[in-house]
Design a protein around this nucleic acid. Structure first.
Lengths: 115, 115
DNA sequence: GAAAGACATTGACGCCCATCGATATGCTGG
DNA sequence: CCAGCATATCGATGGGCGTCAATGTCTTTC
């Protein structure tokens, strides 16, 4: 097996990065929203349901105060990862596939040329 | 178009979350590594190359000191997102498709039942 | 082997943010 | 309307982490 060594740095041609700055910003917001243990667990709980889940049930299942849960839900919502639906006193949350889809396609794009 | 309202919370059956705790931990480490503007930009630069890129070239292209770049590269490496290869004095970095692949499949799994 | 250069490590500092208690808002039943 | 409950907002606080300067380690060259 021939193993080609990397070129000396001075001989290396560096390809420029091509990215849309606004999409980059959105991606970063989504990643920051995902990169927290509590929020990831909340998102997993929401994703495990086959219908929108009431916020009260989320509060029940975590060792976090209600304002903290509410804060996390807001962050996830503003990141485009979940949808909100209020009915009377209750708030229902569900996965927004477009948000996660955007993250997935960006990640696939990064792994792209990985041979 | 019939639009079904969500059930009252008391009537809602909550499905449990099924996840592997160690894989969850790995996913969280990867997401934390990705959720930083500098590291994401570094990763994009690495991903844009078709060969491993020398650390010196990364330092050249950012307004960050060399120790900071080195720190970020370490975080990305420990998250399994990039591979390291030292040749003499120089360190070469490349995308580790397995790391990003794990993130992608986890995200796809979350979006899964999103109809 | 001494000097120079590339990269890693350390310690310190400042800022962001997860979390909380307290409180506000908004809906509903009586 | 008034009481009670679900959720959202606010202000404060503590911990985590991104960044830097200084220094260490390793490699190559003369």
């Amino acid at each position: 097996m021939m193993r080609t060594l990397p070129m000396a740095p001075m001989d290396q041609e560096i390809r420029p990065v091509v990215t849309d700055p606004v999409e980059d910003a959105r991606l970063l917001v989504a990643l920051k929203a995902l990169a927290d243990a509590s929020r990831l667990a909340i998102l997993q709980l929401i994703a495990a349901q086959d219908e929108p889940i009431c916020a009260c049930h989320i509060v029940d299942r975590f060792d976090l105060r209600q304002p903290t849960i509410s804060h996390h839900l807001k962050v996830l919502s503003e990141a485009g990862l979940i949808t909100t639906e209020r009915h009377g006193v209750w708030a229902y949350y569900a996965i927004d596939p477009r948000g996660l889809g955007g993250v997935v396609s960006s990640m696939v794009g990064l792994a792209g040329r990985g041979d």
